[in-house]
Design a protein around this nucleic acid. Sequence first.
DNA 1: CCCTGATTCGC
DNA 2: GCGAATCAGG
Length: 180
Amino acid sequence: MEWTEQRIEMLRKLWGQGQTASQIATLLGGVTRNAVIGKAHRLGLTGRPSPIKREGTEAAAPRRKPAAQRRQQPAVAAMPAPRHVAPQASAAPAPTAQAEPRYAAPAPDRGEIRVEAQVAAPKAPSAPRVAAQAGSKSCSWPVGDPKQPGFHFCGDAAEAGRPYCAHHCGIAYHRKSEAA
DNA sequence: CCCTGATTCGC
DNA sequence: GCGAATCAGG
């Protein structure tokens, strides 16, 4: 998958809402949680409840190459790759019960950005078509469930420097001063 | 064993 | 830049 502006926006919002990388990855689809985390890092939004911390404890014992010995299994060998009609279509991934939203109330803030992040639906094979491809010029406000076929972005003319149109900028950015 | 994010490194 | 593998803590 490609990291479009919309997807990055999604990542930022979901991450900001406290969604876990796995959930974000599931919502976005086509990416693993590793990809999400990696992207998050590159975006510079790693600031969140980190379960662990590698530094500090030992300054004189830097095992800086723990991952060096891996990746020695190219053995790509051989996939016959049967060229029959691709009947598969996600074949019921069965998100398991674990995929259920454990977060009771992610962002109750009235004025906060809130993506309708329903994790219930299975991964839609039909990736959310980017209605507003332009990104920088069209509103990236998510309309509907990211996994629903009908999901789309606002696509209206975005404000300068904002990912959303004026209307959605108001929804997204107005602090909890005079919510709905 | 499951989860989580963090880090590193090959591509 | 991207993401898998891996690490490390709960």
